[in-house]
Design a protein around this nucleic acid. Structure first.
Lengths: 203, 203
DNA sequence: ACCTGAACACCGTTCAAGT
DNA sequence: ACCTGAACACCGTTCAAGT
């Protein structure tokens, strides 16, 4: 049955990867947990199958001429899609986003880096750096969200610093207020353009 | 007993965070699992305690005058220490590295960004961007290592592309060979300097 | 104060047995 | 071929009872 993947996706998008258990999945399919192992090697493989289906649905956007703009469009697209499925980051991380169904995206990004003046090895390095930045951004965002949800208090505050160590840590003290608001705003594009600029201008 | 933290650290540095279970910890301390709950609220808190101890041991390095060089030294230091304890990334991620014992590091980094010409909000943004990059790099590295260890094959290869889609994906095809070697080399510094350059030159 | 055993409510996965 | 029940070897955590 391929419904296994469909039902798994429903669970995972609604409640996250940790909600997907073989027992739960079997129950929703009205069979026994062990029946799953006829169709899927183990839980990891199941997650990969779900991910592949989601990622295959990403639509190819219209791409601007300018390579720098193209890079922004492509990476922001990827970032947006992954933000919707933060559980996927863990699955993806090991493979540098090598699911066959998004190879067009990787190819487009590499092409844009090349068009911007990088040679092929440099484009690969740049690709991996931005990929790490993207993964990290989503990972930290997700971890922060989860933690603030569990404990219902604001994320680890920096305010203690402003009270205790005004003189020894002037910069932290100065930022105490802005820190929390900065965290909320979507800072992905700013880091992205810094990273792209850095790679392009060095080339 | 504070030995709880000591024993936990030993387990965690030797075998990773997933090897630390309350039952295992209790066994190594010759007590019952439930005795732990007298000294520690839950497993998460225990990991935070271990992390805090490790991080407190990071020694303050001699810092160069030049802010750009200072940033490189500081971030590479942090990256190196965290690479040694990849399990910690998950614990740290939620808090933007706000453990009191490393505030000096955060302060130094912010100071270097300011000395390089950023105003305070920009320094905070830059800090967070590089933090995300650092977390992502370690996260991907760890995930790749783990996966290649479990399956004893090379990481998800790109070679299928070079065979099947030579014409439609020329850049990927061209990089097929170099990809795996690129993954091995330590590319952290290159992305770091691109990111720093990008932020400094825009300021 | 601190520790204990037994239990609860779970996991992923194996294995022999069924149809 | 596919499914099943029972079991294995685990988890974190609670709770009433012990010293």
């Amino acid at each position: 049955m391929k419904d296994i993947v469909t039902v798994s996706e429903a669970i995972v998008t609604r409640e996250g990867a940790q909600a997907l258990t073989m027992r739960r999945l079997a129950k929703e399919l009205d069979t026994s947990p062990m029946a799953m192992y006829r169709h899927v090697a183990d839980k990891d493989q199941l997650l990969v199958l779900v991910l592949d289906r989601i990622v295959a649905r990403i639509e190819r956007p219209a791409l601007p001429e300018d390579p720098r703009q193209r890079l922004t469009v492509l990476w922001c697209l990827l970032h947006r899609e992954l933000s919707r499925h933060p559980w996927a980051v863990e699955v993806l991380a090991a493979g540098d986003l090598m699911a066959p169904s998004v190879l067009w995206l990787v190819e487009s990004i590499l092409g844009a880096f090349v068009d911007a003046g990088l040679d092929h090895p440099a484009a690969a390095t740049a690709y991996r750096a931005v990929w790490h930045y993207t993964v990290g951004e989503i990972f930290v965002q997700t971890a922060t969200d989860r933690r603030t949800a569990e404990l219902d208090r604001s994320p680890l505050s920096i305010t203690m610093v402003s009270e205790v160590e005004q003189e020894t840590m002037p910069h932290l003290a100065k930022l105490a207020d802005e820190w929390t608001t900065a965290r909320k705003s979507d800072a992905y594009p700013s880091g992205l353009s810094a990273l792209i600029d850095g790679f392009i201008t060095t080339a």
